[in-house]
């Protein structure tokens, strides 16, 4: 097994309803046969519209959601099969930064409690030494050490997100899953927090799985990118190449619909937009075919296999089959 994070064949289906009084049973294939790899100290961006399953995939990597199928390896640890004890080891090596800084900090706990609790629980250290480490971490994320005794409601969104980042780093992990870490913040603050994450990544040699719906953020932060649509990865490749020459029609749609500064360069998207189909009842064949400008008869029936039309590039589309 190579170093870094390797995920293959990851699947997760949510079932709701059913039973005696639950009404009709609904199955949502949130993550469907997803495979990707992030090298040691590498950074992969997972991009897609809301509801495409990218956050579910990220949570499966940490076993915050139990995957139905698939293999997940990090360094020498088999995450998918890990038992209680091994999970504790994983907790110290892989951490997560959440999207909503208002929901991710316990309003009843001081910053000191929030930051030192992981150290105490894992038996790393406690008391004065833990406080010292918490103080150091605060200055590393750009906050004053004086805030240790404060409560989250006294901070702005950006400051809270810094605390969330500090908490994730307290156990000195080597890999961070960042689930839309800046999308809940003001645009002016986004750039600061993004720069902080990049600094920390370089200084601490962290690997990153970076979830975002914002291509600009991914482009800035990641070396590799994977595009998800309705639970499946439709295209993967190095960021620069993928942005320069997108292969999958959905990737093109995403790139075209991200804001362009020059009005003259904007394209009319009307023929390609349209509603995202329901994940509980995805279209047969290629899930993207109802919105795809290049849809062929085969797209309606056969799900495209993943092929590699160019070195380092992966795409799941009949145009390249």
């Amino acid at each position: 097994m190579s170093d870094g994070l390797t995920v293959s064949g990851l699947s997760k289906t949510f079932v709701s309803g059913g039973g005696l009084l639950g009404g009709p049973e609904q199955r949502v294939r949130a993550v469907d046969d997803v495979s990707f790899a992030v090298e040691e100290q590498g950074s992969l961006g997972l991009v897609g519209e809301s509801g495409c399953g990218k956050s579910t995939a990220a949570r499966c990597v940490l076993r915050l959601i139990e995957p139905d199928a698939g293999a997940i390896h990090y360094a020498d640890i088999d995450i998918a099969k890990a038992g209680r004890h091994e999970l504790v080891r994983i907790r110290r090596r892989i951490q997560i930064v959440f999207q909503d800084p208002y929901s991710s900090l316990n309003p009843r706990r001081t910053i000191r409690q929030t930051l030192t609790e992981p150290l105490r629980v894992h038996g790393v250290c406690a008391g004065r030494e833990a406080d010292e480490r918490a103080g150091q971490m605060l200055s590393e994320v750009g906050l004053s050490r004086d805030v240790l005794n404060r409560y989250p409601h006294e901070f702005s969104g950006g400051q809270r997100q810094r605390v969330g980042i500090a908490r994730a780093l307290m156990l000195e992990p080597s890999f961070v899953v960042a689930d839309e870490p800046v999308s809940a913040l003001d645009v002016s603050v986004q750039a600061q927090v993004l720069r902080l994450l990049a600094d920390l990544r370089d200084r601490r040699r962290l690997g990153f799985l970076f979830i975002s719906h914002d291509l600009g953020v991914i482009r800035h932060f990641c070396k590799q990118v994977a595009v998800m649509y309705l639970g499946r990865i439709v295209e993967q490749g190095p960021v620069e190449e993928l942005f320069r020459e997108p292969l999958h029609p959905y990737t093109r749609l995403l790139l075209d619909s991200s804001p362009v500064p020059d009005p003259a360069a904007r394209r009319d998207l009307s023929e390609e937009t349209g509603e995202v189909p329901s994940a509980s009842n995805p279209p047969p064949g290629c899930a993207f075919h109802p919105r795809c400008p290049h849809a062929m008869p085969v797209c309606r029936e056969i799900r495209p296999a993943t092929t590699s039309p160019a070195p380092n590039r992966l795409v799941a589309c009949h145009l390249y089959g």
Partner: peptide, 17 residues
């Protein structure tokens, strides 16, 4: 459902805690 509970689980806190 709040993220701080999920964060706690990611940090390896027990359900009792």
């Amino acid at each position: 459902e709040r993220e701080f509970i999920e964060a706690g689980r990611a940090l390896g806190f027990s359900d009792l805690r």
